[in-house]
Simulated scan of single mutants.
Amino acid sequence: MFERVRDVVASIPTGKVLSYGDVAKRAGVSSPRLVGRIMSEDTADLPWHRVLRANGTVAEHLRERQLEALRAEGVLANGPKIDMRAHRWTT
């Protein structure tokens, strides 16, 4: 399960994002919260910044760092949110 989540996160292209629920669905994991837990323990070497809450917001404690990393890839926030319709990876 850990490796499936890691594989999905690793495959998110530059300039695209997924929600925790999207990652869960693609990885065959039962819960977006479980994805969050896995990511909190084991994704430092992955593009973790491309995974957001379903409403396009980021974790408050990572906000500046995550938004900066997304901005560097051309994913711009509208205030504290990313437009999931515009930036969600759909393939």
Rank of each mutant, 00 (worst) to 15 (best):
residue 64 E to R: 02
residue 32 P to C: 10
residue 23 V to L: 04
residue 63 R to S: 14
residue 56 G to R: 04
residue 15 G to R: 09
residue 13 P to L: 06
residue 54 A to F: 10
residue 48 W to A: 14
residue 62 L to A: 06
residue 61 H to I: 13
residue 79 G to N: 15
residue 28 G to K: 12
residue 10 A to S: 10
residue 72 A to Y: 04
residue 79 G to F: 07
residue 55 N to Q: 06
residue 28 G to A: 09
residue 7 D to E: 14
residue 46 L to M: 12
residue 44 A to R: 03
residue 65 R to V: 14
residue 61 H to Y: 15
residue 85 R to S: 15
residue 90 T to R: 15
residue 76 L to K: 11
residue 51 V to E: 07
residue 1 M to I: 08
residue 2 F to R: 05
residue 57 T to S: 13
residue 59 A to L: 09
residue 74 G to S: 07
residue 49 H to Y: 15
residue 91 T to H: 08
residue 13 P to M: 05
residue 25 K to S: 05
residue 39 M to R: 08
residue 6 R to N: 07
residue 13 P to H: 11
residue 66 Q to Y: 01
residue 36 G to C: 12
residue 55 N to W: 10
residue 60 E to D: 06
residue 34 L to S: 10
residue 32 P to Y: 03
residue 15 G to I: 15
residue 21 G to A: 06
residue 22 D to M: 13
residue 64 E to L: 13
residue 12 I to S: 05
residue 21 G to I: 00
residue 57 T to H: 01
residue 80 P to G: 14
residue 16 K to T: 06
residue 5 V to T: 04
residue 30 S to C: 09
residue 42 D to G: 00
residue 56 G to K: 00
residue 13 P to G: 15
residue 90 T to Q: 14
residue 50 R to Y: 12
residue 1 M to N: 11
residue 72 A to T: 05
residue 78 N to C: 08
residue 76 L to T: 13
residue 22 D to T: 13
residue 91 T to N: 11
residue 72 A to M: 12
residue 9 V to N: 06
residue 50 R to S: 13
residue 47 P to T: 07
residue 77 A to F: 02
residue 21 G to Y: 11
residue 34 L to A: 07
residue 61 H to K: 11
residue 3 E to I: 14
residue 8 V to E: 09
residue 85 R to T: 13
residue 75 V to L: 03
residue 80 P to C: 08
residue 59 A to W: 12
residue 65 R to A: 14
residue 15 G to T: 02
residue 18 L to H: 03
residue 7 D to K: 01
residue 50 R to L: 06
residue 56 G to S: 00
residue 89 W to M: 03
residue 59 A to F: 07
residue 36 G to R: 13
residue 14 T to H: 09
residue 18 L to V: 12
residue 80 P to S: 15
residue 22 D to R: 15
residue 24 A to C: 15
residue 13 P to E: 12
residue 8 V to S: 02
residue 91 T to Y: 08
residue 2 F to W: 09
residue 23 V to R: 02
residue 84 M to L: 14
residue 6 R to M: 09
residue 55 N to T: 06
residue 4 R to Y: 05
residue 6 R to W: 07
residue 57 T to Q: 00
residue 35 V to D: 00
residue 53 R to F: 04
residue 66 Q to W: 01
residue 78 N to W: 12
residue 87 H to T: 08
residue 17 V to I: 13
residue 86 A to P: 03
residue 69 A to R: 03
residue 6 R to T: 01
residue 87 H to E: 01
residue 59 A to E: 05
residue 17 V to P: 10
residue 84 M to T: 15
residue 23 V to F: 00
residue 35 V to C: 00
residue 47 P to W: 09
residue 54 A to W: 05
residue 12 I to K: 05
residue 80 P to D: 15
residue 82 I to E: 02
residue 36 G to L: 03
residue 49 H to C: 06
residue 85 R to Y: 15
residue 4 R to T: 03
residue 26 R to E: 07
residue 86 A to C: 01
residue 86 A to H: 01
